[in-house]
């Protein structure tokens, strides 16, 4: 191996290691502060890592604010959204590829057009509608606006379009109804698309602040990001440790999920880029 190549590798490796250190710095600092006792946080001699680990910040985070409740709300909202999205998107995507009906092109055109609309755009009318129906400050308000995922329909449609139609015809001959074909044949086959979509959907809605900020003012309905914003707002400067602990707890599920299932996460989130 030539010296030049070695030098080049050394330089590029140093560069990416340094970059990775900067990228990871906020994570490390968050954990570090969350584990520091108060006197180590508020000091002139700031240390990178705590000298002794203090779990009390985490205890405080769960008692000072209702962190458990926020996490539970996050789960309810994410699962609720995902279930409805799949219930609507999968049959529709199946119909778009495997059935011949007159409105098919129109519906697919709507899906493509829908991809162009960021959800911020529909916020005002949907807020108005929910207010009319007296549904603001409910789980419904957090779930309902997202049940029609055009991205999901698009993703599943692209997937179903690749499955040979023989398979569905065989199922028809075997006596399966169209609904049974959707859920017993098409959906299990679309598992890769479904996991990618689930990752995309759950990440988007677990991390979302915009809509919970608009649709709810009741603290009991706060999702994790909404919850820590409450915490941050009421925090007077002394609760830094618990605040970082809460932030760490909120971030943990997705980060751990990502580390355990890197492939699925990368694919799901990369696919999400298709959405406008």
């Amino acid at each position: 191996m030539s010296t030049r190549l070695l030098v080049r590798r050394a330089v590029s490796t140093t560069f990416v290691l340094l970059g990775a250190a900067i990228v990871l710095l906020p994570f490390v600092w968050m954990l570090s502060v969350s584990l520091k006792p108060a006197d180590e946080i508020f000091t002139r001699e700031i240390a990178f890592l705590p000298t002794r680990f203090e779990w009390s910040n985490y205890v405080e985070a769960f008692t000072a604010v209702d962190l458990t409740r926020y996490l539970m709300n996050g789960v309810v909202v994410c699962v609720g959204i995902l279930v409805f999205q799949i219930l609507l998107a999968v049959p529709c995507a199946y119909a778009l590829t495997q059935r011949r009906f007159r409105a098919r092109t129109l519906v697919f055109g709507m899906v493509l057009a829908g991809l162009l609309v960021p959800y911020h755009v529909t916020a005002i009318p949907i807020f108005l509608g929910l207010a009319q129906l007296r549904l603001l400050d409910t789980y419904t308000a957090l779930i309902l606006p997202f049940v029609a995922s055009v991205f999901g329909m698009f993703l599943f449609r692209q997937f179903f379009a690749q499955i040979p139609s023989d398979l569905f015809e065989a199922a028809r001959v075997d006596g399966l109804s169209e609904t049974a074909i959707v859920w017993r044949i098409a959906f299990p086959l679309a598992w890769p698309a479904a996991t990618a979509f689930a990752v995309f959907s759950v990440t988007a809605h677990w991390n979302d602040l915009f809509w919970p900020l608009i649709a709810t003012s009741d603290r009991a309905l706060a999702t994790p990001p909404r919850g820590i914003v409450y915490f941050n707002d009421q925090e007077s400067g002394s609760d830094v440790g618990p605040l970082m602990a809460a932030a760490a707890v909120v971030t943990a599920p997705l980060v751990i999920g990502f580390l355990l299932a890197q492939r699925a996460f990368t694919q799901g989130l990369a696919a999400g880029g298709l959405k406008g």
């Binding site: 040979p164 398979l167 028809r172």
Partner: peptide, 15 residues
């Protein structure tokens, strides 16, 4: 299904 036909496909079409 109502005709009670059985069909074998070129691609076999196994699930």
């Amino acid at each position: 299904a109502e005709r009670n036909v059985a069909m074998v496909f070129q691609s076999y079409a196994l699930y």
